[in-house]
């Protein structure tokens, strides 16, 4: 039984861990906020001056900012739609009895272990390249003109690459959820004459909702900061067609060793990510309760 005294002692004992964790989080954040108000370039050290909101207005009025913002949203939503819908389908399929189930599962999960830069290079040079790529060879074999993926549909191509990397994650989480589904419930409904569609819609989907929420939340965190794929394939171009916020921070600030501008861009990215997170939690967060 916990007395008031032992509670105090317990709090006192966990305090070092809490303080350490807090410092771990707060100190870098506070320094970033502090830097974001300075005109601070690594290339002219010792000349830091306070500039107020200059770095922020500069970043927000960047001609590429609006494009980068919409691209970020399109990228996140696009990848989420693809991975969640295909992930559900794959999870249901892989849950069925079949020969070689273990091997098929490994095949499906394998892309998750490929590093982003490597997968971007592979897709760019071996598949999407309009001269030597496999898609171009296939198009030519069918007598078609090869499509220039990265020039004419850069964002869609990046969505494809990123979806390929994240589909295994969604499948894996949803598959484990499928395995905890009560088979007898399904059979009972089948005997009551429920169609396949209604069994999916009224039993399977509600059962998966919590897992889907987890997939969406975790993937959103990572998808907001997609960078390597863009750097390797298109460098954010043509124009700003595939520039997202992360890449914009890189191009506008880090390439120039501009610590102040980079910090401001980083803080804006954090704020945007939080806005997205609040919306997400409002929309689907209730699935996590109970």
């Amino acid at each position: 039984m916990a007395t008031a005294h032992s509670k105090t002692a317990a709090r006192f004992m966990i305090s070092p861990a809490v303080v350490l964790l807090l410092a771990w989080m707060i100190v870098p954040l506070a320094m970033t906020i502090y830097f974001s108000f300075l005109r601070y370039s690594l290339l002219s050290p010792g000349e830091e001056t306070f500039t107020g909101w200059d770095n922020y207005t500069y970043f927000l009025t960047d001609p590429a900012f609006v494009a980068a913002f919409t691209n970020t949203i399109i990228l996140v939503v696009g990848v989420l739609l693809i991975t969640v819908i295909l992930g559900i389908a794959l999870a249901i399929l892989l849950d069925q009895p079949m020969w070689g189930q273990g091997i098929v599962r490994i095949l499906v999960i394998a892309p998750f272990f490929v590093m982003p830069t490597v997968s971007a290079l592979v897709w760019k040079n071996m598949f999407m390249d309009p001269v030597n790529g496999l898609f171009a060879h296939a198009a030519k074999a069918l007598g078609l003109q090869p499509f220039e993926f990265l020039s004419h549909a850069p964002l869609a191509s990046i969505i494809l690459i990123v979806s390929w990397q994240w589909l295994p994650f969604a499948t894996l989480i949803l598959l484990t959820a499928m395995q905890s589904l009560d088979q007898e419930q399904l059979e009972a409904s089948e005997m009551d004459g429920a169609s396949k569609w209604s069994r999916f819609y009224y039993i399977v989907l509600p059962h998966l909702s919590r897992a889907i929420t987890v997939v969406i939340l975790i993937q959103t965190i990572f998808l907001l900061s997609v960078f390597a794929e863009i750097l390797v394939t298109t460098n954010g171009g043509p124009g700003t067609a595939s520039t997202n916020i992360t890449y914009l921070v890189y191009a506008q600030s880090l390439l120039q060793f501009d610590v102040g501008g980079g910090s401001a861009g980083g803080i804006i990215a954090v704020i945007l990510a939080n806005i997205v997170a609040i919306f997400l939690m409002r929309m689907i967060g209730k699935n996590l309760e109970a």
């Binding site: 590429a64 460098n235 171009g237 124009g239 067609a241 191009a251 390439l255």
Partner: peptide
């Protein structure tokens, strides 16, 4: 890097 993006967009025809 930013001007390079513009010129590659001109080359891509966008």
């Amino acid at each position: 890097t930013s001007t390079g993006q513009q010129f590659s967009a001109a080359l891509a025809g966008s």
